[in-house]
Design a protein around this nucleic acid. Sequence first.
DNA 1: ATTAGCACTCAAAGGAATGGAGTGCTAAAG
DNA 2: CTTTAGCACTCCATTCCTTTGAGTGCTAAT
Lengths: 344, 344
Amino acid sequence: MDLNPRKLRILRAIVDEYILSGAPVGSKVLSQNPSFKLSSATIRNEMADLEDLGYLEQPHTSAGRVPSDKAYRLYVNNMMQRSNLTEDEVKVMSAYCQNKVKGLDAVMRETASVLSNITHYTALVMMPESGTNRLRHLQLVPLAEGYALVVVVTDAGVARDSVIHVPADMGADELDRISRSISQRYYNCRMVEVGERMTREMAMELQDRGTFLTDLVDTMESAPGANAHRIALSGANNMLDYPAYSDIDRARQLLAAVEKKDSMYRLLKNAGPFEICVKIGSELGQDIFSDCSLVTATYRIGSMPVGTMGVIGPTRMPYGKVVSVLDYMSKSLGSILTNLLEED
Amino acid sequence: MDLNPRKLRILRAIVDEYILSGAPVGSKVLSQNPSFKLSSATIRNEMADLEDLGYLEQPHTSAGRVPSDKAYRLYVNNMMQRSNLTEDEVKVMSAYCQNKVKGLDAVMRETASVLSNITHYTALVMMPESGTNRLRHLQLVPLAEGYALVVVVTDAGVARDSVIHVPADMGADELDRISRSISQRYYNCRMVEVGERMTREMAMELQDRGTFLTDLVDTMESAPGANAHRIALSGANNMLDYPAYSDIDRARQLLAAVEKKDSMYRLLKNAGPFEICVKIGSELGQDIFSDCSLVTATYRIGSMPVGTMGVIGPTRMPYGKVVSVLDYMSKSLGSILTNLLEED
DNA sequence: ATTAGCACTCAAAGGAATGGAGTGCTAAAG
DNA sequence: CTTTAGCACTCCATTCCTTTGAGTGCTAAT
């Protein structure tokens, strides 16, 4: 008893049907599908086998069968085909950020919003990672005595504010001088190098300034990192649509989990820098998401992968469709960012 | 038949009891309260009067009474007393941002998080408004040819990025020169003035630069505004706790409404710059929130009101408690921001 | 190997019965 | 005139039972 072609065909039909209907699939509906020339009894036998092999599950004795995570995995790897996007969908996706030039934050939020609207699931979009980005400009802005605001701008357009302590006698002039000097000296260097080189090359110059230099380097390295930890989230309410969560308590926990952006960030990050990645149920490694799947796509600035976006929904989502949408959107976001930010 | 003191006492007891229990209040439980020396029959008569006057409602004939919005309004205006915060609560609130110096975004997010954790409702925190803030620094950072990133820093520490078109032949040097010139010339001017003055004073200088000047002014005026439109949201999942929303469909709509940050912003804004403001049910003017209340507080930098924070929950929330928490938190956030940003 | 047929299982849906909290009204007591 | 005890009534919530029907596994015939 192994996975002969007929079993595969039946399994596939079950997954397709279940994704469509959401109800456990019985032998009868399958036998009525004209592409099978088999009686329901035969199909029943095959289904029993598939259950023994771990591909199907039965909610209770007299119900139909439901695909297991293992079945979805097989389906996604070998059977799924990307679905064509409808005209409407393409229209929405290509129009979404065409006209106006906006800040990075707004672009991320809108991307998430479009994703969740089209898929009707929950969308997550990571801010561009910047460790590999290049420095464009640094500005230290004096605040109250002893404090300054650090503004770092990179070629990914990221400009985030964070505050550091500075020596009390360091005035606006000196801060400005330092800003200009760093901006010029390390223009176009990768952020990861900038920290190193500053520590090495500016130690002398700032040796009587206490921890100022190390504070600044820490901030420059971590601030854009903290930024990258930020994600745009949209459509969390769609979680409540999953019929499986008519149970309100599950729904709450799920929502609470999604609201924790840290853990969502880790989820996206774990999905790795693959073009497209599908994580199914238990593969997500969190009990709460045991009947959810996450589909992620990496977007690029130029040819460099800088971030990940994803859609989280029930395991019975239409993978083909979602993959197509993410593929399109990741390329779309990539080109928006590239047009905006890439030079030369 | 009017609101004699006895009716008021009864009404108050009903509101207190209903807020506590969440179940319609009957005449019997009230009569058992030793502070009333009345039989249930008498109380029933009074309750019937209160219903005629519009202060009480009956879910169905054989249920107890539930306070109407009108009753809550009376309660909040005349009867409510702020409750003392527990030691634990004070500890959490005073510790939440004490140690580390962080960026504005992080402070806002944490504020929202603490608010929602303590109240168990949904918390909204507006970013500081900046129209009245003063310019600290402007930097135009060249991106791709024809584009530049505008970074505006004000005394509220806001540094937001947005992108504008620039004339193709305007190089890094010129952008830097313009940045420096504006930063110096309008240092410490209120943002609302900066726009006007730039339009007037720089028109000559930049007259052959097409729409560059007006674009820049627009961006400078609107970018920090767009920032102010941003709000931090936390604890949306708490919505699902309201027993009234065991109905999943209502819950979905509510969540969807809360996710629309624009409309939430308007809600906060409408609550006005009052120290503390309570909007009850229908007063919010949105059907979907007809059984929610919003309590808001204004926070200040120095003595200037710059933003609003709020908690949205069921109309039967413990107003006294929530008001106390908001009062405390708004002052706390105010002093954090003030310490960080106020000069002189 | 396939299929028709049959007995069996079990969740979901639909009543009917029960219980109980709360009301309004009336008539008596204060 | 106000208050209260008493009673009939209403209506929701819960429980329990029945029915229904989809789906199964197994067996015997094809």
